[in-house]
Design a protein around this nucleic acid. Structure first.
Length: 89
DNA sequence: GAGCTGACATGTT
DNA sequence: CAACATGCCAGCT
């Protein structure tokens, strides 16, 4: 553990302002690996941490993606924060 | 140490 | 327009 990349990704996700959502690609870009969104998703997937609002991370398609505690939870949190998620086209 | 896995993205068919 | 196929990266087994 303690890989710089992982910590960096988690840090960025933690810094996502309320009501805002970032795409995996954006996070990867911020972390310095614009093409590493794969790893970003993988990290969040394995990383169970209540301090990480992984629900604020969505796909570039504007879709929800997934969530470690269940996609339903993510949808509810986003609805609460009124994030700009394009559930409906 | 090597290979598999995955909450993705982009390009073609 | 939708589905399929390929490429990419790092973590995990």
């Amino acid at each position: 553990m303690k890989s710089a990349f992982k910590l960096r990704v988690l840090a960025v996700v933690k810094k996502i302002p309320k009501g805002k959502v970032l795409t995996y690609k954006e996070i990867a870009r911020k972390t310095g690996r614009s093409k590493a969104w794969r790893a970003v998703g993988n990290i969040l997937n394995k990383n169970y941490d209540p301090k990480i609002p992984c629900h604020r991370v969505v796909r570039s398609d504007g879709k929800s993606g997934g969530y470690n505690r269940g996609i339903a939870r993510k949808r509810r949190l986003l609805a609460e924060e009124r994030a700009e998620v394009g559930w409906n086209d």
